[in-house]
């Protein structure tokens, strides 16, 4: 645990030592603002909830999270600092978890900074703040899942551009599997059994369930398993590829 915290602190301070943190947070806030108020038309809906705010999160994370995760391991492999990390008395698992947690907490900070949206809706009406909190938890879990995927992909390559594109593509598939167009197509050709299967794998469905305010254990398990699975693959990838 001590080593995880040490890695976590080093990673966290490196976000704020470079413009990465500030650029990411500013872009994230501007985009969420634009999507929520202009495309989601949160104010015209006359409903005191944050549905218009959360709906766009999967699509936003689709490219913002891979942008954050692409450097996690690819950069260490390219600059060779992975040799330094991996010859210190730290296990690969500790390094993977420490890096992941730092990135995840960082997205948590960015997410928390959207609080003016929450303040606005509370000023204008009387929303169900429990449901909103659930929405934030769901959004953070979604970000964590994409980060775990991105971190794993980043460990497979020295090239950050490749890491970004591949991670974004995988996240896109996970999001698109829950889209109505795709599910209608499946229904036409394969019937409802197949539709249910793909629905249950899509991040959007689970995220939407949570952000309605219904925190089902199955949705938590879904995101938890995604994170654990990809971090586990991440450790294996580091072990196999660190020196190549």
């Amino acid at each position: 645990m001590h080593n995880v915290i040490t890695i976590f602190r080093r990673e966290m301070s490196s976000y704020f030592a470079t413009p990465v943190a500030y650029v990411f947070i500013v872009i994230y806030l501007v985009l969420t603002g634009l999507l929520t108020f202009h495309i989601g038309n949160i104010l015209d809906r006359n409903q005191a909830d944050l549905t218009a705010f959360f709906t766009f999160h999967p699509w936003l994370y689709l490219f913002l999270i891979p942008a954050l995760s692409m450097r996690l391991w690819a950069e260490e492999r390219r600059t060779g600092t992975i040799e330094l990390s991996m010859t210190l008395p730290i296990s690969q698992g500790q390094a993977v978890v420490g890096k992941f947690l730092a990135a995840w907490c960082f997205t948590g900070i960015a997410l928390a900074l959207t609080f003016p949206v929450w303040l606005t809706i509370n000023y204008l009406g009387e929303p169900d703040n429990g449901a909103i909190l659930a929405g934030y938890v769901g959004s953070w879990l979604l970000a964590g899942s994409f980060l775990a995927i991105g971190s794993f992909i980043s460990a497979l390559t020295k090239n950050q551009v490749i890491a970004f594109v591949v991670a974004a593509a995988i996240c896109f598939v996970l999001v698109a599997m829950g889209s109505t167009i795709f599910l209608d197509f499946l229904n036409e050709w394969f019937g409802s059994g197949v539709v249910e299967f793909f629905r249950s794998l899509s991040v959007v469905i689970h995220f939407t369930e949570i952000s309605k305010g219904v925190v089902d254990i199955r949705d938590i398990v879904y995101f938890g398993s995604l994170i654990v699975l990809f971090l586990f693959l991440n450790v294996i990838a580091i072990d196999r590829l660190k020196a190549s």
Binding site: R10, S13, S14, A17, T18, T79, G80, T81, I82, E83, L84, T87
Partner: peptide, 12 residues
């Protein structure tokens, strides 16, 4: 251990 080429984290 001092690795070949001295890899270090540049922003630290």
């Amino acid at each position: 251990y001092l690795p070949e080429g001295v890899p270090l984290w540049p922003d630290m």
